[in-house]
Amino acid sequence: MVISTQNLTFNFGNQKVVNSLSLQVPQGSIYGFLGPNGAGKTTTIKLLLNLLKTDEGSISVFEKDLKSNRIEILSKIGSLIEQPAIYLHLTGRENLVNRAGLLQLSIRRVDEMLELVQLKQAANKKAGQYSLGMKQRLGIALALLSDPELLILDEPTNGLDPNGIIEIRELLINLTRQHGKTVFISSHLLSEIERMATHVGIINNGTMLFQGSIAELEALNQALLLIEVDNTVDAANLLKRHQYEVAQVTETLVGLPYHSKQQSGEVNTLLVNNGFRVYSIGKQQQDLETLFLSITKQA
């Protein structure tokens, strides 16, 4: 595990912002850390970076205790927290040069990063004049500058246009698949990260509601066989008499839990043989977003 926390707890005054959180982020994964606004995502990230003092519980990163190995661990992490931390009176390039100087990296790396996030044209423009998306890309360049093993990104696609989001997504996938890096990325939109995340943690009110691989999340998500038929109530009764479980009945549709193609065919035949007109029949997956909402609402 690259990040692993045990019963991590943090209070702001009397309010428990993070409540005995146990994160498990495997090596090489893109871990999507999801939750609505105010769920405790940024606070958790600040705890992971030792910006906030842990009230209870422990954090280990790269199998080492964060408190006692702070510098060693931080040297392998690149991070972007909330708004990117950029000196607005310096140019984009100067921001990177400053960081490279502090971390003793070569200037060549600065140009590589500018190229990577496509800020070469605007490199000598003051960062204060950058658009939100450009600032965000500069923030990502700063996070990637030291070629870190672990990237911790807090809502990095804020303010990016769809193209920018796709580029970042591809960059992150490439970093993990080709270079074995690990990415911990927070978002309040599942749709934004479901296409790249390998693992997901869903948090609300400081508590972890779900943690596991994308496949495990999908498994929670049962598909329905939706049948459009002329008389839905009679059709549902017929199906029930034949030991089928009916999940929903509306004026136009009957829904059964989906099991297999075989079963879909049998249901169709049964209905048609009993004189029903079947207009359409098909499998429908509940989208993950709905699932995400239903998970966060349960809490």
């Binding site: 970076l49 030792n50 510098i71 060693e72 927290i81 931390a85 950029i86 000196y87 607005l88 971390l103």
Partner: peptide, 18 residues
């Protein structure tokens, strides 16, 4: 103020420096 203005304290303290 250079750090306050740009909100860069958090960045300074996540650098691998004491």
């Amino acid at each position: 103020n250079i750090e306050h203005r740009a909100d860069t304290w958090k960045m300074l303290f996540t650098l691998p420096l004491p």
